[in-house]
Amino acid sequence: MRTMMYASFLLMCCFAISEQSCWCGSKSTQRNVCNSHIVVEAKIESYSENAYDRNYQISAKKFYKGKEEWYDKLADKTTLVTPKDFSVCGPVDLKVGFSYILTVYVTRGKMHNTHCDLQVEASKATNTLLEGLDGKYLKNCDCKIPHEMDEPQVFRSPNLCEHFHCGNRDILCARDVNGHCNWQPC
């Protein structure tokens, strides 16, 4: 009986900790772009805060994904909600007056971005990132990118980029001339 109570207590603690913590899956820009609702270059105009969030007022400059499907349907097209607390994947610190390339999720009619998402100062965007945003990432979303914690693949899958890391989160997983997904040169 005591062992069962102890196990139940441990399970509840693990659940509570997991609910209170933030875990980012992949650090791959391509995965962020493919999984987000909107990818936009936006200028940060101002911000306000409440107890939980920092609400950035933005002006969209260029869309890479999701304008018609998501952005145009929003009632509030100028507020980007970001968390302030680390336990919910914050904080996101964007500088007023600067433009950023952002991956955005729409939840309950509002745009959201966390520190797991993309926030790249537009003037510092790499050529690889810009080429990916110009269509290469979205064209190759069917190429699977393993999570950093995944076991290495024993077999070669035509839809999976094998584990490879060159220190650049903007690298592209794309189909080669044989139709296999491979990491493109860094």
Rank of each mutant, 00 (worst) to 15 (best):
D85N: 14
C22Y: 02
C22E: 01
K67Y: 14
T79K: 07
A42W: 01
V120N: 01
P185V: 11
N127E: 15
V92P: 02
W70D: 12
V104A: 03
I101M: 00
A125T: 02
W183H: 05
P91T: 08
A125F: 00
F15N: 11
H115W: 08
A60T: 09
K27P: 04
K95H: 10
T82N: 08
T128M: 12
I17Y: 09
V120M: 00
L160P: 00
H180G: 06
A7M: 14
K65P: 02
N178R: 15
A60W: 03
H180W: 14
S87Q: 13
A16T: 13
I101L: 06
V177L: 13
Y6V: 15
T103F: 03
N55F: 09
G109I: 09
H163C: 08
G90I: 03
E41N: 11
C14L: 15
D93G: 12
R169H: 11
E121A: 11
W23L: 05
E69H: 14
I38Q: 01
L11N: 12
D117M: 03
A16Y: 12
E69M: 13
Y105P: 02
I145D: 00
A122W: 00
Y6C: 14
T107S: 12
M1L: 13
C166H: 09
K139D: 15
M111T: 06
A51L: 12
I145P: 00
Y6G: 12
S157M: 07
Y100A: 00
R175A: 08
C181S: 08
E19F: 14
Y100E: 02
R108M: 13
G167C: 02
Q153I: 01
P91H: 10
L102N: 02
S21R: 13
C161E: 00
C116L: 02
K61C: 07
S28D: 01
C22L: 04
A174W: 04
D93P: 05
V81H: 08
D150E: 11
T114V: 04
Y47A: 06
R2E: 15
M149S: 13
C186W: 08
P146T: 01
K144C: 03
P152E: 06
L129M: 10
F164T: 01
G132C: 07
G66Y: 04
C24E: 02
F86K: 12
G90M: 06
G90N: 06
